[in-house]
């Protein structure tokens, strides 16, 4: 399996299996000794409020294009093998998985750095929006300046 045919991006409503994704990153891939994965989940509290659910909206077409660009940048900066980014959309509940980023490389440093870079850039460039439902009602989340700063450090 070459990297060009590996399905690197999935935007989906369905849940995903961490074990299945790791297996896909590792299958027929004896050259990479490092597999770094990140999974983001729905927290029960946000800024002190009890959250009941999140609804994720995105911009079909642009989402895929922006993720392809982010992955391309990561490949230009680090020696990495396979990359997989999964982002769920629709209504999600506490504890549900939202996002997955998996990166392989020969040695760990490249995969660690590339994984964090992809997440930091996804946070500020990929067109997803979260709407939060809590006891007091429903509201769109505001972007955090800390996320902007994290992406800028690269």
């Amino acid at each position: 399996m070459t990297n060009t045919t590996y399905p690197e991006i999935s935007i989906q409503t369905a849940d995903f299996s961490l074990a299945d994704e790791v297996a896909l990153l590792e299958r027929n891939n004896a050259i990479d000794g490092a597999v770094v994965t990140f999974t983001g989940r729905v927290r029960n509290k946000n800024e002190g409020k009890e959250v009941t659910s999140l609804t994720l909206e995105h911009y079909p077409g642009m989402t895929e294009k922006s993720l392809v660009t982010i992955i391309k940048q990561a490949k230009e900066r680090w020696r990495i093998g396979r990359v997989k980014v999964i982002h769920r959309v629709g209504e999600l509940f506490i504890g549900d998985q939202i996002v997955f980023v998996g990166v392989t490389s020969k040695h760990r440093q490249d995969a660690f750095a590339a994984n964090e870079f992809i997440m930091d850039y996804l946070k500020v460039q990929a067109p997803f929006w979260k709407k939060e439902a809590c006891q007091s009602g429903v509201n769109w989340l505001d972007a955090k300046s800390s996320d902007k700063n994290k992406a800028a450090k690269w």
Binding site: L56, H87, I98, K123, W129, W140, D142, A143
Partner: peptide, 10 residues
């Protein structure tokens, strides 16, 4: 052309 608020995915 698209217009939207700052993004909040991840």
């Amino acid at each position: 052309v698209a217009f939207f608020p700052p993004v909040t995915g991840g």
